[in-house]
Amino acid sequence: MSDALWVRWLRRLVLVALTVFTAVPLYVMLASSVKPLRDMQGPFTWIPSTITFAPFVDMWRTVPLASYFVNSAIVASGATACAIAIAVLAGYVLSRYRFRGRGGFLTMVLSTQMFPGILFLLPLFLIFVNVDRATGLALLGSRTALVLTYLTFALPFSIWLLVGYFDSIPRDLDEAAMVDGTGPLGALFRVVLPAALPGVVAVAVYAFITAWGEVLFASVLTSPQTRTLAIGLRAYATQANVYWNQVMAASLVVSVPVVLGFLLLQKALVQGLTAGAVKS
C-alpha cells in the first residue's frame, strides 16, 4: 500500500514540526549549560561562543545544590522503597483475592489521583501543624512527612500497574508454591514477585520520578534544611539576577538520570500508563 505524494509530504512536515518543537527546549538546556556567562547576558545565541564546563562546577557554590540534591535523593528513594513494598502487597491481594470492598478500594485509589492536589494540601498542612503542636514531633518541614506524602502519590498508579502484572502471571504458579507448603506471602515473594520483576522496576522508576519532580507539596512541607531540588532550583530561577548557564547545567544533571530511567523502562511504563485508557 503506497501513499500518495501529498500524504508522504504531510507526514514529513508533521514529524519535522513536532521534532523541532520537542527538541528545541532540550537543545537550549544542553547548549546553555556549556556556555560562558557572557553568552547568557546578551541576546540569545544558538551556538556557544566557547564551550566551557565551568557551569557544572560553579553551580554547586551558587546555590546549596548539594543539599537540595541530598534531600531530593533521600526523599525520593525513601518514598520509592516504601511505595514498592506497599504496592506489591496491595497489588498481590487485589489480583489474587476477591473480597468485600475490593472494587471500592480500586475505585477510590484511582479517583483520588484525579482530585486537585490543592484539596489535600491545606488540610495536610493543618494536620501536620497540629500534630506537631500536640505531640512535639516536627513533622512539618521534615523529610518523613514528605516521604509519607510522596509514597501515597505513587501508590495509585503503582497498584494498578502491579495488579495488571500479577493478573498476567498464571495462578497455577502460586498454587504450586502453596502446595509445596509456603503460605500466600511465601508464594508472593518466591514465585510471583520474581516473575513480575519488570513491573516492580517500572513502579520504582515511576515512584522515583513522581517524588523527584513534585513541586506543590514540597513548596509548603519543606524547611530551608529539607528543601528539595524542585523548590530550590525554582526559587533560584525566579530571582532577578540569574546565572542561567548554571541553572541549565543543574537542570541537565537533575534530569538525565530520571529521563534515562524512563527511557530504559519505557515499554513497561508505557504499558501501565496507557493500559487504563486503552482497556476500558
Binding site: T19, I209, G213, V215, V258, Q266
Partner: peptide, 16 residues
C-alpha cells in the same frame, strides 16, 4: 524523542 518531555522532571523543563 517524543517521550522525553513527559519523562523530564516538570521543574527542569518549565525552568528551561
Amino acid at each position: 524523542l517524543f517521550l522525553v518531555p513527559f519523562a523530564l522532571p516538570v521543574f527542569t523543563s518549565v525552568i528551561t
